[in-house]
Design a protein around this nucleic acid. Structure first.
Lengths: 91, 91
DNA sequence: CATGACCGTGATACTAATACCGGTATAAGA
DNA sequence: TCTTATACCGGTATTAGTATCACGGTCATG
């Protein structure tokens, strides 16, 4: 095992992150937010739909900056189903 | 070109991130911190040395949580040489 | 109704992140 | 001195993130 495939828990965490970003985006269009963050619209879409469950740190940071979301809040909200160690405790 | 190769600016940003993490690690060993964050020691080493300039968001989040660093502080410190839009202004 | 612009989406291509392995160097201790 | 522990480094393998291309849907406008 060289590159651990993403666990279902990580997938769900990515979906939660995407949902938060989409919710924060509100009525603004993908292209607008993506352009403001400096990423492609397709990348933003993948992140929002959860198809990119573990995006790059600075990508999320740029999006959060554009959307006005604190990074710590994002991380906490996505990890609330389990702390940093308990990866798959129950939910 | 489908996947933009990392720019020198992004490399330097990664080095800055790594330096901050290493500084926050203090005297603790890599394996200890890496284990606490749930990543391999090699990954932590690559991030600290800047050889993984754009790590995954949750990887950085886990490391920051272990090290007691606020994510927003990390992002701000790494992007202080230029905001989200100004990628390569000078320094 | 046709056309174009915008938005979201799927497929594809390519680079990078993550993990494992072996080897090396330095410092501490037996 | 030899062993051990820590960190660094190179290479390798595999998955995943990101960008470009091409398509369908919707709305405004001619």
């Amino acid at each position: 095992m060289v590159r651990t495939p993403l666990t279902p828990w990580e997938r769900q965490r990515g979906e939660r992150l995407g949902a938060l970003l989409r919710e924060a985006r509100g009525g603004r269009s993908m292209v607008e937010v993506a352009a403001a963050a400096g990423v492609s619209a397709e990348t933003l879409r993948k992140i929002e739909t959860g198809r990119a469950p573990t995006p790059a740190f600075f990508t999320v940071a740029a999006l959060a900056a554009v959307l006005g979301l604190p990074l710590d809040d994002l991380a906490a909200a996505c990890a609330e189903s389990g702390d940093e160690d308990g990866r798959a405790l129950s939910a």
